[in-house]
């Protein structure tokens, strides 16, 4: 509760300064939110050149809309929502798919990913080769996350990497909380299956 109050006070202070004509305050706003916004852009947009334009566009939109910010959420969540919407508009304009369920449902069934295969992953994790395995796992995870749909990629990152709550993610994506949970369930399952399939292939 205190943390929320503190956040609102900090946000009010910063927004007040920006609206009072102090550009330095907006620098602080950018610095405070840049990490989250960058995560969203990188997860939703593949084109490196377009990412730069989108990032600028997001903050210019935020600056223009700042007088309308009503403190109904954290300032960072509000800017993340602008980031998500801007990326969404970009995907729609480029006719790119936000969520390709067919592609992710092509994964093998649970039965085909045998227990032995899973055990080998767990065993590797506990073994003395832990460091090597960790690095390898991180690389595989990175590439498998990249293969997920933009929406699944974003949800996985916001929840596990940025440690946002379901409520915050729902606010950012403007999806019902239940839908966010259900998409996350599918995304994690898909990622787990892909990960195990990858290990199975490498063993062969």
């Amino acid at each position: 509760m205190n943390e929320i109050k503190e956040n609102i006070q900090t946000d009010q202070y910063l927004v007040g300064k920006v609206l009072g004509g102090e550009p330095n305050a907006f620098v602080t706003v950018i610095r405070n939110t840049e990490r989250l916004v960058t995560q969203i852009i990188f997860k939703m947009i593949n084109n490196t050149e377009d990412r730069k334009d989108i990032a600028q566009d997001i903050y210019l939109k935020a600056f223009k809309s700042l007088p309308g910010f009503r403190y109904q959420s954290k300032l960072s969540t509000w800017i993340a929502q602008i980031a998500y919407n801007t990326c969404l508009t970009y995907l729609e304009r480029k006719k790119l798919v936000l969520l390709d369920q067919n592609q992710e449902n092509n994964d093998p069934d649970e039965e085909s990913l045998e227990l032995a295969n899973k055990k080998s992953v767990v065993h590797l994790f506990n073994s003395t080769e832990n460091d090597i395995f960790q690095r390898e796992l991180n690389e595989i995870l990175k590439s498998e996350i990249e293969r997920l749909s933009p929406l699944h990629r974003t949800l996985i990152t916001l929840y596990h990497n940025e440690e946002l709550s379901y409520e915050e993610i729902a606010r950012i994506t403007q999806l019902p909380e239940g839908t966010v949970k259900s998409y996350l369930l599918r995304a994690r399952r898909s990622l787990k299956d892909k990960l195990l399939r990858k290990y199975k292939k490498e063993e062969l």
Binding site: V121, V122, N138, L141, I145, I156, H160, L191, K192
Partner: peptide, 12 residues
């Protein structure tokens, strides 16, 4: 497996 995966995502 899930535990390993979640820890891995967090470390990305």
């Amino acid at each position: 497996v899930y535990q390993i995966m979640f820890a891995g995502i967090q470390k990305q």
